[in-house]
Simulated scan of single mutants.
Amino acid sequence: MNGFVALFSGINVGGNRIVKMAELRAFFEELGFADVASYVQSGNVVFCAAQTDVTVLTKTLQDAFDKRWGFHSRILVRDAAWFARLVTDNPYPEIVDDPTKLHAMVLEREPTSEETGRLAEKCTGPERFEVKGDVLYLHAPDGLGKSKFAEILPRTLKVPGTMRNWRSVLALAEMIGQR
């Protein structure tokens, strides 16, 4: 069995698109996955599967989730090695002691240089970012909630993804490392 993390986008935010974590864990178990655990209410599930292809796992989960809950939530599945690289490749190690200021946006795909350049033009505040493969690392010194750049990031970059603060990243990396 191989360890994976499924990151859901847009569930349990602002009282909308509610999915209880106990129900989500049961859903994964019904689909035949093992060692299922969730982290916080925003849709982070660590699980084990015999399947090794994240594309197949993503499609399986996406189709079953949409059918079960009746709405679409983008699901990004990553394996343990990918998650370990996410942590190791952090370009802002000096920020890790303040995990509310450091975020990782897991992207569906690696952005093109044109897409990244368009985003760089809009980064005029105190924030800074770096893209490594299919991850955008964001240092928001005033916090994500006060960041004007974070507000425009998804529609400017135009690469679907989901953001996690560094505390969540580290917790998920530890959880998947135990699988």
Results as ranks from 00 to 15, higher is better:
F27H: 00
W69Y: 15
K67E: 14
E94D: 14
T112S: 03
T100G: 10
G43S: 11
I176N: 03
Q62P: 08
Y39L: 01
P91C: 14
V87P: 13
L144F: 10
D89R: 12
Q62W: 12
V106Y: 01
A80L: 02
N12G: 15
A81G: 13
T88R: 11
F71V: 02
V96M: 07
D97G: 15
E174A: 07
R25G: 02
P154I: 00
G3C: 14
G32I: 05
R155S: 05
A6P: 13
R179I: 13
Q41M: 02
L144Q: 14
G145I: 04
D98M: 07
A81H: 11
G70M: 00
A37V: 14
S9C: 15
R17P: 10
M163F: 07
A81Q: 12
A173E: 02
G43Q: 08
A37I: 08
D79S: 01
Y137T: 00
V135G: 08
A150T: 01
P99L: 06
M105V: 13
R167V: 07
V131R: 06
P160V: 07
S147C: 01
R78V: 04
S9W: 11
F28A: 05
R118D: 13
I95E: 04
K132C: 07
F65C: 07
D53R: 05
R68A: 08
S42F: 06
L86W: 15
R25F: 12
L138W: 09
P141K: 01
K148D: 01
V36W: 09
V36Y: 06
Q41S: 03
E110W: 03
L57G: 15
F27P: 01
V87K: 03
L24W: 03
Q41T: 02
E110T: 14
L76M: 08
K101S: 03
V106Q: 05
A37D: 08
P93M: 07
D66M: 00
A49L: 11
A84Y: 08
V45I: 10
A22N: 00
K146W: 04
N165W: 07
T162P: 09
Y39F: 09
R179S: 14
H139W: 11
L76Q: 10
W82A: 07
E30S: 08
P91G: 04
F28L: 09
L102Y: 12
G161K: 07
L119N: 02
L107R: 11
E110R: 04
E110Q: 10
N16Y: 10
F83T: 06
L136M: 12
F4G: 06
G143Q: 01
L107K: 09
S73L: 10
K148G: 03
E108M: 10
D142N: 12
E127S: 07
M21Q: 15
L157N: 02
P141I: 02
E114Y: 10
P154V: 03
N90F: 05
A171L: 04
W82N: 06
T124K: 15
Y39P: 06
A120R: 05
T162K: 03
A50V: 09
N16Q: 15
W166T: 04
V45T: 05
G125S: 15
F28P: 07
